[in-house]
Design a protein around this nucleic acid. Structure first.
Lengths: 200, 200
DNA sequence: GTATTTGGATACCAATGAGTATCTGAATAC
DNA sequence: GTATTCAGATACTCATTGGTATCCAAATAC
């Protein structure tokens, strides 16, 4: 039943398991309300495994931040403005109800707070956000150059909408109808809706 | 030197002092990394004062959230679209460098996370965000009714920009030029800048 | 003035959690 | 096959912290 694994494989597997458990628990309960024992237990291990693979709690958090930085996003294509917005909207609406999305958002906020306070982790946080922004900017540039704002600024604004609408939606779903995000994206990209009214 | 205070006054004063200290420490170090001893000490008191005035740590947090809910914002006037945007932009740019602003933002995020996880505090968090949104909506309505989106949605989007740009700026000031927020607001309100380029 | 209430201080407790020291069994080296 | 290494388990420690019990002195009641 149990596969025979080489040492390096075994090690890598436990590292990833620990990081997975940590990310989930950090999102659920918060970084400082999560003990190393809990993280290890959730991964089917003990605290010994944590100290065998990480320098301590802070180091584990750093590794988590780093792992997020490392997994690269899918490559953008070259769609029309309209279809890109539709894709974005669909993706937003299909992601919103998934528990995974909530977890990701909570973990993001946890890591943001942690990075804001810990000088040593600040850099990783900054790089991560830059990478996401850069990814958005590339997508925006692929849309053409007749947009109202420079791609870099548009990217920052799109990300702001994502974060800001997300926070509000999570707190109070009814207060932020699903199409609000889409309307915001359209406005930022300079798209005028046909007719003054608000369809859909 | 010391004023003679009635009991109720004394009590109210210590309550406010404790809340002030708590808010500052929560912003600086985080809710769960701040002990009641630290809060009390920062207010020149001891833990006894906390338990004499609050049910416990959670209750103190609830009171903090409640106090935020209670202090009402200044009343909006009825300016032109352009002047309102300028006011908003000026206010943004003058607030951004103030340490107070950072503290408020960090405290907000702390309270948001706490409220998201604690069912009992969720309501206060929701009400608080609703109040801010409603305030924005009133301002937006005062601008007239020829805006691209309904006031309620515009309000949510403006708040999203505020939060989202703020988070990014705090992490990486150079990455988000000051005018980005203003450009975003203009876009949401349907203002076209004269000339396709980006002046200032 | 005396009695009583009570805001707040002090001393304590039990629980928790990060970090350490030590040990063990399986994987590698030879 | 034997020796060695090392990932991970186990069993501590020591500091911290929320909460409680008790006490005191100033403010109120009469």
């Amino acid at each position: 039943m149990t596969e025979r694994l080489t040492r390096a494989q075994q090690r890598e597997r436990t590292v990833q398991r620990l990081l997975d458990s940590a990310e989930e628990l950090f999102a659920e309960r918060g970084i400082h309300q999560t003990s190393l024992d809990q993280i290890a237990a959730a991964a089917g291990l003990t605290k010994g495994a944590v100290y065998a693979n990480f320098g301590g709690k802070k180091d584990l958090i750093a590794a988590l931040l780093q792992r997020k930085l490392d997994d690269d996003e899918p490559v953008p294509e070259r769609p029309s403005l309209r279809s890109w917005i539709d894709t974005l909207a669909d993706s937003y609406e299909s992601n919103v109800p998934r528990p995974e999305t909530r977890r990701f958002a909570m973990a993001f906020v946890e890591l943001w707070l942690f990075g804001m306070r810990d000088e040593g982790h600040r850099g990783a946080l900054r790089d991560w956000l830059r990478a996401v922004r850069e990814h958005h900017a590339r997508e925006v540039r692929a849309l053409g150059d007749d947009l109202p704002l420079p791609a870099a600024e548009t990217a920052a604004l799109l990300m702001a909408l994502d974060i800001g609408i997300g926070l509000q939606f999570m707190t109070d779903p009814e207060a932020v109808p699903a199409h609000t995000y889409t309307r915001g994206v359209e406005a930022l990209l300079g798209v005028r809706r046909a007719g003054g009214s608000v369809p859909r």
